[in-house]
Design a protein around this nucleic acid. Structure first.
Lengths: 151, 151
DNA sequence: TTCTATAATGATAATGATTCCAAACATCGT
DNA sequence: ACGATGTTTGGAATCATTATCATTATAGAA
């Protein structure tokens, strides 16, 4: 944990930013909830517990800053709320999401299936891809199975 | 044009809704601006021109209704504004978007490149895909070329 | 046609997410 | 330590969207 915070501190400092107590508290919350896709509001509430004097705007700014530094990934599932995920070293490319419209669960696919498509975009459209977002809405296996046993 | 309005009228009526003058004006604006990705505010301003007495809430309500009926598709590019696209009969599947982070332009790809991926999802993950969203952020050809001539 | 029940509308208030701004803070040269 | 300069902060403001509510329009029954 401390090692990862130290690493992020380095990343900030290399760009001329400081790891202030507020930023550190925010990063700690992200590290402790690495599995979840937290919204800024979620992060804010959790940070409040360890640093009650923090302001919501600071959390937004910190998340935005970390996003620019590629420490976190800003996600958008179409519900009007931005969510933030820590990027692990291994995931240079984004993973994709399977969002179940029945139970609301979200599963991640860590494979990146879009590399051939991105190459095609560069060649056929002259479009240089920096980032992408791919989400699927549908019915997850669990809901499918319970639905079958119901009917 | 009239034929398409008539068709939408049928769709509304089949679900017990009426094509009121306000809804018709909204649909006309969408038909006349089919190429664009209009925000609710955009639609509102355009509808005002042909039906000045309309309220913003009605435009929002109408767009939401049309979205539920799958007449329009509600898009979200992460800029905090929902945008609405008419769905054409041919596009059962969504098209994809190339969003330029430099000039903000947006290009559409009408091909659906995800069909093989969706099949894989069904088989490997047991996930039944209903809908998907694929957006690429990057630098468009035009910006790339002008950037090269600048430097 | 007239009455009645229901759906739809427009104005405005409320909400939720995000951003702006003046004040607090830290850093550096003196 | 002291002031100048730029950074960071928290609260207030803003923007998009949704809910409320009183009013109006509509369709069907009598």
């Amino acid at each position: 944990m401390e090692a990862r915070i130290e690493k992020i501190k380095q990343q900030l400092q290399s760009q001329g930013y400081k790891l202030t107590p507020q930023r550190e508290a925010t990063v700690r919350v992200l590290l402790e909830n690495e599995e979840d896709h937290l919204s800024a509001e979620d992060v804010f509430m959790l940070v409040k517990e360890i640093a009650p004097e923090i302001g919501l705007a600071t959390v937004y700014r910190t998340l935005e800053l970390l996003s620019e530094l590629h420490v976190v990934e800003k996600l958008n599932f179409g519900d009007g709320v931005a969510r933030y995920d820590l990027r692990t070293d291994s995931s240079k490319h984004h993973h994709h999401h399977l969002i179940c419209v029945q139970c609301g669960s979200m599963e991640e696919i860590m494979e990146d299936w879009l590399i051939p498509l991105e190459e095609r975009l560069e060649q056929e459209y002259g479009f240089h891809v920096i980032d992408h977002r791919l989400d699927f809405q549908g019915i997850c296996r669990r809901c499918r199975e319970s639905r079958e046993s119901d009917e």
